[in-house]
Design a binder for these strands. Sequence first.
DNA 1: CCTTGACCCTCACGCGGCGTCAGGGACTAT
DNA 2: ATAGTCCCTGACGCCGCGTGAGGGTCAAGG
Lengths: 258, 258
Amino acid sequence: MSRYTVKQLARLSGVSVRTLHHYDEIGLLRPAFIGENRYRYYGREELLRLQDILFHRELGVPLQEIGELLARDGRDRVAILSRHRALLAGRIESSRQLLRTIDRTIAQLNGEGTMDDQDLYHGFAPAKQAEYEEWLVDNYGGEAMRERIETGKQQWFKAGPEAMQAALASGEAAERALAEQFAGGTGADSTGLDPLLDRHRAWVSQMWGRECPREGYGGMADMYLAHPDFRTHFDKHGEGFTDWLTTAMKAYAARRAS
Amino acid sequence: MSRYTVKQLARLSGVSVRTLHHYDEIGLLRPAFIGENRYRYYGREELLRLQDILFHRELGVPLQEIGELLARDGRDRVAILSRHRALLAGRIESSRQLLRTIDRTIAQLNGEGTMDDQDLYHGFAPAKQAEYEEWLVDNYGGEAMRERIETGKQQWFKAGPEAMQAALASGEAAERALAEQFAGGTGADSTGLDPLLDRHRAWVSQMWGRECPREGYGGMADMYLAHPDFRTHFDKHGEGFTDWLTTAMKAYAARRAS
DNA sequence: CCTTGACCCTCACGCGGCGTCAGGGACTAT
DNA sequence: ATAGTCCCTGACGCCGCGTGAGGGTCAAGG
């Protein structure tokens, strides 16, 4: 039949011999039997189990958990796999955002297009940006607001492409962190969100070039709601994320105001 | 101006205080200045650098390399970023394959559809499978081949959905490993590919239920070439991968025959 | 002015998932 | 018998921090 030594199994499965030793040590994958010479011998069954292990390992599941997981029966495993599926889907979406960020960075480092041509509001066409600025001016603070926006833009240009880039990436990261809370079922009014909203507000502050006050931050929420582009953008993180986020932002602003 | 303590910077950037200590220790991110009380104080510049660091960290770049990377100037960085971009794109594609694998696994564990309805040839419609089998029978070994295929299928069903699943995932992993070599510029006739092709052949053997002989493995290459579906499938890993892979398979089979 | 509580510091150990020796048997082929 | 390739068992090292312990510092309120 099939009888593999460590090296053979290693080649067939693509892992190292040391890894097989390790899996034996921690009891995750034991040899089918051990020779008198203390050699480890594996059979077809172990090969299949190993493949199952590697499958879960690629998903980022800790080895310990993989062991427990493989000991369960089908019912449970479906539930667990579904969770992993959701996590993986999230990671893929994040990675795609990262890809876009990289492309922007490269474009900027190559000096292709100034910031006006790029997307200050991450992912939206330049023509739209003016529209959003108008909206902010119309709905909040008039000239004071306009001045604030200009200040932000200038600081922005002064800092150079790499700084712009870093800041944009940071904003996306903050967004994703919030999206994870949303996906995890955290309530939009939870005070546990404060650190994450702090972070998001800090990012907005950077865009503006100075501290973003509470009512301003609450105002952003309204802007997000008023423009369908934002809804499209945010709902990529999951259906309903836009509503959840804006609710959270307003609740946070209200808490801070008191 | 802006003067942040460790905790403040941690909140704004989403990392832990310990991480900031660590980055200071290894010289990756030093505070703007240190107070007489030995407190670390960071400024806006450090915030930006930190964001830049986190951006690269998300790409999986080791901290050491991030440090060296940030010390370079724009020209080099574009090249490096491009490499990272390619790697990330590859990872995304792998993850999407994994997603599909998970979906199949879940479907199978739920008992939705027997294996006949599923894709034995990973990713192709059931109707196609019969076609491929016919092709193999017509071009290689006639009845002997047909019997071999049936043997494989039976062992397949007997093993149950999870084993099928594990084997499928393993095949995809082997495929990806080869695709990485292709992307890295390895020649299709390199003997260094032997372990990876061993692995792939071992997978094919599993599908067949017994050892896959050399001429059979070479035959698979012809089948891949004869059916455009395979080309479509393999070329997802990069344009020209199908040709490269089939060449490699034949070279390997020839080597083994000698 | 003193207390409280939240912050700050510096060691220093631990962990996961192995890689990588070192030192020594076992098997196979010539 | 000799060489070459495999196998074994320790044991230490690495990265990127988490998680204490043990002790100073600061801002606000009583």
